[in-house]
Every structure is written in C-alpha cells, then in structure tokens.
C-alpha cells in the first residue's frame, strides 16, 4: 500500500531531486516488505543496493544534468489506455495463480525439499540461499558478475570517452570545475 502511494508521488512530482529521493524511500519500503515475506537475503540486498547505491548513482547523474522536469505538454491519453489494458490483462492472468503462501504450489514443490534437506549437509552452511547462489547455481552468479563487469566497462567508455572529447568551449558541468 505504501509502495503504491510512493509510486504515485513519483509519478506526479516534477522536481527530479524529490523523485530520486522517493525512489530510495520506495526501495526501503520494498526491502521491509521482503522481510515480511521471509526473504531476508533479498531484503538486505535491496536495502543496500536499491536504496543505497542506486540513489547515490541517481544523485550523481542529477548533479551532471538538471534538476527539474519539464511539464508534459501532450495529453497522456494513449499511454493511459495502453497501461489500463495491459493491467487488466495481467490481473486476469493472476486469477490462475496459486493462492498466496500455498505450500503445495508447483513452484514450491519441485527441487525445493532437496535443497532444504540436503544443502546444510552438502555445503556445510545453514543459509540455504547462500548455498544455492554460490554452489548449485554458481554459473548463474558467474554470468551475473560478467554482466556487472560489462556494464562497468560500458559506463567507463561512455563517461570517460566524453571527458576526452569535450571541447574547451562546451558547457561546463560541475565535473569540469573539479578538474
């Protein structure tokens, strides 16, 4: 419920700084919700990465761009129709979903009992999420690291390359004054 309110506030506000701060608040509420849903590992990752690093990145990007959003001129009728139709289709899709918290749902039956019973013995650590992440699905995590590395290299190419290309007569950002 809080999440929806924060989402609407982000939609309505035009001050980008407030929007970025609210997105941090949104991540933090999402993290609290993950704790309530028994996903503690996900919750602390979301709190650290979603509420922390994302917000820092966004504030950094804001300092290099401008602070206010232009008021939209054209009528948002078409997007609204698209969104409502998609939303209705998705809600219709949830009618076939298993009940919330149902232990017999297909997703909660397959392979899970084995992880819960065997992983503390096989891996030797009590946290099942960590065992699955680092051991059974280690290749996934390796792929994840590759993605992060690629993203890091791409960011450096984009921003670092821009600094070299910048001419002396171009717009001076806060970054230029630092140099």
């Amino acid at each position: 419920m809080f999440l929806a309110v924060t989402g609407f506030a982000i939609l309505r506000l035009h001050s980008l700084f407030a929007v970025v701060m609210l997105s941090g608040v949104y991540s933090l509420i999402a993290a609290a919700m993950f704790v309530a849903l028994d996903a503690v590992d996900v919750a602390f990752t979301e709190a650290a990465v979603g509420a922390g690093i994302s917000t820092v990145l966004m504030v950094g990007a804001l300092s290099l761009t401008k602070q206010r959003e232009k008021i939209p001129v054209h009528t948002p009728l078409l997007p609204m129709v698209v969104v409502l139709v998609t939303g209705a289709a998705l809600i219709y899709g949830t009618f076939d979903m298993p009940n919330f918290g149902d232990p017999d749902a297909p997703a909660n039956r397959y392979l899970v009992d084995r992880y819960i019973q065997e992983s503390p013995k096989e891996i030797g650590i009590p946290n099942i999420v960590t065992s699955v992440l680092a051991s059974y699905r280690g290749f996934d995590t390796l792929g994840e690291v590759t993605v992060i590395f690629t993203a890091g290299v791409a960011v450096l190419m984009l921003i670092g390359g821009a600094r070299r290309r910048r001419r002396p007569d171009s717009r001076a950002g806060p970054e230029a004054t630092r140099e």
Partner: peptide, 29 residues
C-alpha cells in the same frame, strides 16, 4: 521454510538491475 530458489534469482536480478540502471544513467549523462 520459504522457497529459497526465487530468493536466489531475485538476488541476482537486483544486482543486474543496478548495473543496467547505472548504464542508463551514463547514457543520460
């Protein structure tokens, strides 16, 4: 216990999400 498998997938997804966000912000800059 809660099902650990989706937790693992979402842990990965959160971190990848930050990577894409930072790439998007770099493009914006």
């Amino acid at each position: 216990y809660a099902n650990p498998l989706p937790h693992v997938l979402i842990l990965t997804a959160i971190v990848v999400g930050v990577a894409t966000t930072s790439l998007g912000l770099a493009l914006v800059v």
